[in-house]
Amino acid sequence: MNGSESILDVRDLSIAYGSKTVLSGVTLDVRENEILGIIGPAGAGKTSFLQAINRMDAFNASMKVTGTLNFLGRDVRAWRNAYALRRQIGVVFPLPVGLPLTVYDNVAFAPRLAGKRSRAELDEIVERCLRRAALWDEVKDRLDSLGSLLSGGQQQRLTIARALSQDPVLLMLDEFSIAVDPVTTMRIEDVLKELRQEMTIILVTNLVQQARRLADRTAFFLDGRMVELGSTESLFNGETLFPETRDYIEGRFG
């Protein structure tokens, strides 16, 4: 199932805020159609890592990124059109962000940015993405009510539908279940399992077991470095080279 083609090739990545280095020397590749899990305690640098990939560092003047991040063969900072780069990458934030627009407009937002105007085409995209995010049945009768008024779990699925509407090559989820009830978490996990057929996913998670359930390979971040990256199976079978990884997985800290 896993193509071995690499979508994202990270070499010697370092990230600093001002003079404080929060991530250094990260080298890894993300392969087509895999789910790459990233686990590690708070402050390890996971979110910063995702931000560097879609160039969200542009919004924070103190954030400095060095090293290379080849996305589809070109360093993200060499992309002339950062907006086009971001349109290829879907992002789901830890806290759901329903834009203060209708449910419909939330999902139609990215397609409209991409220049789609035909109502029929937008209708089709909105329905398809909401279905795939397991939200359609709950909102199909209230597509024109505000997306920011949905419950937390629904908003998180709305943001997933929105990310899918970009038709992304890469989907990045940052601790999506942090503000979501367990039932919704399970539903979203099922969605992700299906999505793996069509796109590549980076799943940053605070739940070690979630990585175990979903990820093909898992990376462990700790204190600003990547301790190791291996197949999820081997990592969770205790075939890890590093005691910190085992301690973290077994819940002894973090």
């Binding site: 879609n54 969200m56 919004f59 907006y83 086009a84 780069l85 971001r86 349109r87 290829q88 879907g90 992002v91 934030f93 806290l95 962000v97 834009l99 203060p100 937002f109 990215a110 940015l113 991409a114 943001t159 929105r162 990310a163 970009q166």
Partner: peptide, 14 residues
């Protein structure tokens, strides 16, 4: 208008 709306929109490539 909360910044998270701006960030979400820009993350989508706006």
């Amino acid at each position: 208008v909360p910044d998270r709306y701006r960030e979400a929109a820009e993350a989508m490539g706006a």
